[in-house]
Amino acid sequence: MADAEARRGSTGPDASGRVLDADDIARVTRRIAHEILERSHGPSNVVLMGIQTRGVPLAQRIAGSIQDIEGVEVPLGSLDITMYRDDLRLRGARPLEVTDVPALGVDDRIVVLIDDVLFSGRTIRAALDALSDIGRPRAVQLAVLVDRGHRELPIRADYVGKNIPTSREQAVRVRLTEVDGVDEVAVEG
């Protein structure tokens, strides 16, 4: 933990703007898995829900880490929040991704939402709306790989891979092997 705390913000971006490489991402997801288990007193009630698109492979990795640590397979789902966005008027219709609710549902479970970047908080608001239409979890927590600040809603993450101070004009690019063929996080602009 102390080690992980020390890492946060300790390494600045290199020349290409990269702030996390593949090894960093692997360490960070493993730490988040530990933190989830610590906070929930074990894996028994936990359900992981990855937010489409890049939250889904992150959720799979965290589930994999929990399996390594505890030898237990936690229920894993995916959430597409397109139909819950508040910006249809601004951004138009987009193709839908898969929403997959674990067979046992989310009622009375501790649901950990997982996303790649926490920015305005609007995606998470939409995800909370979507989740409440699916069932009634006992608690909802949020894990993100990167928190880049600039919240527009009163939302915060329970588990943060790395806090990256940015300006609004910058873009944070998360690339994951499953989607983009490479693991890295970079700040651009």
Binding site: M83, L88, R89, L90, R91, G92, A93, R94
Partner: peptide
């Protein structure tokens, strides 16, 4: 309904 109304929102913008 979703795709047509969504596409119109985009076009208007």
């Amino acid at each position: 309904l979703y795709l047509i109304l969504g596409a119109r929102a985009e076009a208007d913008l």
